[in-house]
Design a binder for these strands. Structure first.
Lengths: 199, 199
DNA sequence: GTCTATAACGTGATAGAC
DNA sequence: GTCTATCACGTTATAGAC
């Protein structure tokens, strides 16, 4: 029988998280199993259970990872000191990266499967939603104050429109093609650039 | 689709379809089973298999039902002879009905679980997407021609924005509350009403 | 940290009686 | 059209060896 492969500390855990994130965004929570992860990584399913006692633990960790990644991205973004419209464009580009390997936004997964998702995963997803909403509405608010952006209504309404549209567009892109996402990106940014009417 | 036009008058069949549609939109494709449907309807799981040989058949039939319902809705809508903005508002209200029992848009389910969904279901979902996109872009196009609506870019881009935003907003509403959907509805319609700038 | 082995269960699906 | 009975399989999860 094959000897266990020695791997650097924490390497297996990272590989599990990485694959689980990919499949979660491609197939949904119920669309992959510990056994499939084990097979793909050429380890035993009980090795997966060692790192993550149960599936809710694994998926909650995946969502927590999304939050870490987004926090890191925000830090990098803050350094660039770009305008609000450019930053929001970069946010849409961040979402667009999911198109490369046919993923959807993790919030979409949580939203669709909400009623069949473990509570831990829901809680992390809600926190991620709050992170995104806070970042977006802040950019929109200051962008409007500085006259860079024009839109009617509350900044938070606009932030939710952007989140919802990006997430929905990634899903529609799978049904009809990546052009659908670009169409939505175009429509969103055009709407923001649009100067308010002088009455 | 496997099932021809002729629909058996069976009450059981209708009850199965109704419950499957509800659960599909609440839990996703993998979030419910024949056994659970049988239990809820107090029949045997093999009775479900009688009406729908396999799960893909059932779910494809559910999607086909969505298309029929939407076609019927379009007919009713055509009779009203309302303006484009009002009609698009009604479309968003149609989506908003899903909030009542915490469902999401079926296209969201298909988009999220695409990689783990049977091909029959994907095909029906794509057809439904085309139905919605065609109806919306037509309203947008004629609305703009008549000066009722104002937006930049292609009508189809705008149609995709509306579809994506509505679908994403239903999902976000589950994570944070129904107000999120209303915020998106507001932002969308405000954007359309916004008069183009006179340069 | 990974393995073997296995438990306990739910799943989609089928055959055939009534 | 619905039932009983059953199947093979995949699933999550645990115990204990190395």
């Amino acid at each position: 029988m094959a000897q266990p492969k020695k791997r650097p500390r924490g390497e297996t855990r990272r590989r599990i998280l990485r694959l689980a994130a990919e499949w979660l965004q491609q197939r949904g929570y119920h669309g992959f199993s510990f056994g499939q992860i084990a097979e793909a990584l050429e380890i035993q399913s009980s090795a997966v259970h060692y790192h993550f006692p149960a599936k809710p633990d694994l998926v909650a960790a995946v969502f927590a990872g999304y939050r870490e990644d987004f926090a890191w991205w925000c830090e990098q973004q803050a350094k660039s000191r770009e305008g609000a419209l450019a930053q929001i464009g970069h946010f849409l580009d961040l979402e667009a990266r999911n198109l490369d390997d046919e993923r959807v936004c993790p919030l979409g997964v949580a939203g669709v499967e909400y009623a069949s998702l473990p509570a831990e995963a829901c809680a992390e997803a809600e926190a991620l939603r709050d992170d995104l909403a806070a970042w977006l509405s802040r950019r929109l608010e200051t962008g409007r104050e500085r006259g860079e952006l024009a839109f009617d209504g509350a900044a938070m309404d606009q932030a939710q429109l952007i989140m919802a549209a990006a997430q929905g567009a990634l899903q529609l892109a799978r049904l009809h093609g990546q052009a659908d996402f670009r169409a939505v990106r175009r429509a969103l940014l055009t709407g923001l650039r649009h100067p308010t009417v002088q009455a």
